[in-house]
Design a protein around this nucleic acid. Sequence first.
RNA 1: GGGGGUGUACCCGAGUGGCCAAAGGGGUCAGACUGUAAAUCUGAUGGCUCAGCCUUCGUAGGUUCGAAUCCUGCCACCCCCA
Length: 410
Amino acid sequence: MSFPAVEHQLNIIRRGVEKIVPEEELVEKLKKSIETGTPLRVKYGIDPTAADVHLGHSVPLRKMRQFQDLGHQAVIIIGDATALVGDPSGRDEARTKKLTVEEVEENAQYYLNQVGKIIDLDNAEVHHNGDWFGKMDLGDILNLCGKVTIAQLLTRDDFSKRMEAEVPIYLHECLYPIMQAWDSVVIKSDIELGGTEQLYSFMLARDLQKDQDLNQQISVMSPILVGTDGTRRMGKSLGNYIGISEDAFGMMKKFMQLPDAVMKMYYELLTEIQLDEVEQILKGHPKDAKVRLAKTIIAEYHDETAACAAAAQWQKEIGEGNLPSDIPEKTISRSSLNEDGSLQAARLLKELELVPSTSQAIQRIKGGAVFFLIDSEKTKIADRGEWIHVEEGMVVRAGKKDWAKVKLSD
RNA sequence: GGGGGUGUACCCGAGUGGCCAAAGGGGUCAGACUGUAAAUCUGAUGGCUCAGCCUUCGUAGGUUCGAAUCCUGCCACCCCCA
């Protein structure tokens, strides 16, 4: 087995990476790998608590792919045991929801399918950490716990913040980083990938590996990708994510709403475009830069054609304000209408599921967000009590993002 | 086990008997402006059959004409002592 030169590898590895600790050791490992013709074992652990893979997850996964392309061995850990604990990273409180074994397995499968869009699964090792944690007895667990002190645990940022804020830290959560670190011992990792928030667990892994007379792993940590709101980390629960399984146009719409300020980060972490070129792109009109960004990423998860189509559709329907082509059809039963076939405006919005409550319907109407179209003739609705004659095929809008087409049924 | 403290809407947080569907801020949503960016401005932010009504201030009761506010039990969390 032969590998590219160390410098070349480092160039690729360093891109979009916030911290490599310790970096000198990485160089040594790469050299040794070239000399001996042995691929490095690169670990990435996933916690199958949520099923959707989004761009945030894709950052370390892309890094993994780069390692694979350089000839190294990908090792994926499905944290079926750790998922039962819940990752305390970056959380200000414990996870309340406990997943069942079945849910975890189901998530894991779905997860892997998506992960396969980024890395080469055929050439990756996949392990479930339940395989080894499930076999441990109390003695083993106590032995493991005996390797870490409370004081060490409390140096962990999330924990110390929680202590500070007087938010509870449960004992089982303390086990999480220890388990994660133990995974590294079991699979004998050379490198571990993840976000910077994983620093603690990654370092702990080194301690445990040393304790077992193993090679110590290097941490290659990516910055945390901010979500579409431009401030908080991308996460499903925050509703600021772009999923890698979303349809092209859906992704397009989300990309175009990104704050300009995050573009640089997205280019760096989510594309392969050379950084000096990125700089050129960002000097141009921000809108063009954003379209290019969106197209590049969408093309990776769909294809070039789909990406261009999505961009064209966006320009036409949103950029130029034409009628959207993907207006969902909503059924209204004739029996819910008045004798003359009409409905009060606020009720209509609710019937069409454009708003979750009557109160919100009223708010939207007051805010001037509501109008309807019959044969492309636009009529504004200004009063919530207004009686609207409901017709088959009429299009109702209750805000930029909320459209519906009426279908009448008996 | 003992003592002290806290629990308010999505979040933070004011409110200590009626004027409280509950200040203020953040967030979010809608509108204007724009490049569906940012900034700014305006409005909204429990629900409904909406100038009225119903449900909400950890939870269950109680006192009172009237409670988020007072009392009691319970629950959860934090701190101190052991």
